[in-house]
Amino acid sequence: MAKHVLFLIHGVGDHDSGWSNSVAQTLAELYGRYEVAQLLPFENQFEVKPLFYNDKFDALRAKWESAANEVLALMKPSPSGAGALQQLTEWAGSANKKTFLRTHVLDLLLYRFFPNVAGQVRAAVHKQMLEGIKGAQRWSAIAHSMGTSVLHDTLVWMFDPDSPAKLPPEGFRMEVLAMLANVSRVLESSELGARWDVYRSVVQPNVKVTKGVCSRFLNVCHNWDPIPLPKKFKPTSDWPDAATRAVPGAFQDIRLDEIEEPKMVHDLEHYLRNPACHIPLFRSLIPLPGVITAEEEKAAVDAHRVHHPRAKLQKEIDRLKALRLADEDDDWQRILVMIHKYFS
C-alpha cells in the first residue's frame, strides 16, 4: 500500500549516511505504545526516509585538508610576507579534524555565510525530497536543529511561486512539518528578501490547500535547550493568518520541560521521546479522532516523568504550583485545604 513518507533531516554534528536508523527505530517504538498501532501499524503506515547533507561539509573539509597538506611542506619556511597565508592554509588544513568547533560550529558558519555552500546543501536536499515523494500519497517531514533551516530553504525552492522548480501546493504539499529545536530564524537568508524570511515565506501551514507547504506545523522547543533561543522562532498569534490559526492543530507551539540527561537536551531523540512532543506529532500525522486518547496521553506523560530525575522534580513543582493561592486570597477554607494538601 502507498505509505505516508516521513522525511527526517538531521542537524549539525558528525552524521553519517545511516544517521536516521536509531531515530526511525525510536519513532516506531514510541508509536507502538499506543492503541492506534493496532489498527494502523507503523510499518504499514509510514516509510521513513532520511535526508542527508553532512557529506557536503565533510567533502569540503577533506579537500581543504588534502590541498593544505600538499603545499604546507613547501611553505616552511614561508616566503617573505606569506606568513599569514601559511597560517590560513594551516587552519584550512585543520578544518577536517573531528572536533566540536569543526563539525558543529564550522558547518553552521559555512551554511549561513557561504551562500555557495548553502546552495549546494539546499540543492542536494531538494533533489532527495523530490525523489522521495515519487508515488507517495502523503508525506511529512521532521527537521532538527540546523536541519530546520535547511528544510525551510529547500521548501522555498520547492513551493515558492517564483522558484524555477516550483510545485503547486494544492497538488503536492505535505501533511505535517515538525520543526524541532527550530533555528531557521537565526540562519535565515533574510537579505534575499521576504520569500526567505521565515515568517513571510511559503513555509507555513494554511487552511487553504492552495497556500503554504503543509496542513499542520509543529514548532517544538525545549525550555532548557539553549541552541534555538537566539532569534527564536516565535510567530505572532495570527501567523500565518487568522483563519489558519483558528483551525485546531494547524500551528502548534510546543514547549518541553523534562530533562533525561542535561547534556542531551538538544538531542533529536531526547525531543522525540518526550510524550509532549511525540503525541502531538502522531496525532498530526494521523488526524483522526481518537488517535491517542486522553487517558493514554496521561499515562505516557506520567510514565515519562517517573523515569527521569528532573521530571520527578517537575511533578513536585507542578504540585506546588497547583497549591498556590492568589496573593490576596483570605478564604480560610481554601487556606486550610492548601495547608493540609501541602503536608499530606
Partner: peptide, 21 residues
C-alpha cells in the same frame, strides 16, 4: 509538473556537485 521540477532539481544538484568536485 512533477517531472519538470524533478529534472530542474537534479540539474541544479548536478551543477553544484560539479562546482565543488
Amino acid at each position: 509538473t512533477y517531472q519538470l521540477a524533478l529534472e530542474a532539481a537534479r540539474v541544479r544538484d548536478a551543477k553544484w556537485t560539479r562546482y565543488f568536485e
